[in-house]
Amino acid sequence: MTIEFDNNLPIYIQIMNYIKGEIVTGKLKPGDKIPSVRELASDLQINPNTVQRTFQELERETIVETRRGMGRYVTSEEGRIMTIKKEMAKDVLDRFIRGMRELGFQGEDIVAAVAESVGHEDAEKGDV
């Protein structure tokens, strides 16, 4: 696992987002085992306490659960994962919409711009 860390932001948040991303895109499946604190700290070369905090936060958000004596696992509740996916999408959307508004776009124009952009991408994919 390699993550490009930005030292300007709390690292535990960055790891959380990375793991959530892995879960949401299916690379980490529901019920999959998550590496231990030590393993992750060693892989990423970061402080184990930081990893610990990450896991604590993920547990608080019920994305990850601890099974006594066995380790940490991705939640098997698909519904929860869907919710997380939507939350992460909303973050991206909020940032996008704010950015577009700063450029002067308004409501329907934004929707139209998105439709055009997605249309182009699909067309390109279709050609290839």
Binding site: D6, N7, N8, L9, P10, I11, R53
Partner: peptide, 11 residues
């Protein structure tokens, strides 16, 4: 981590 959050800067 708190310093990063507070200042938005790396150490």
């Amino acid at each position: 981590e708190e310093l990063r959050l507070q200042h938005g800067k790396s150490m």
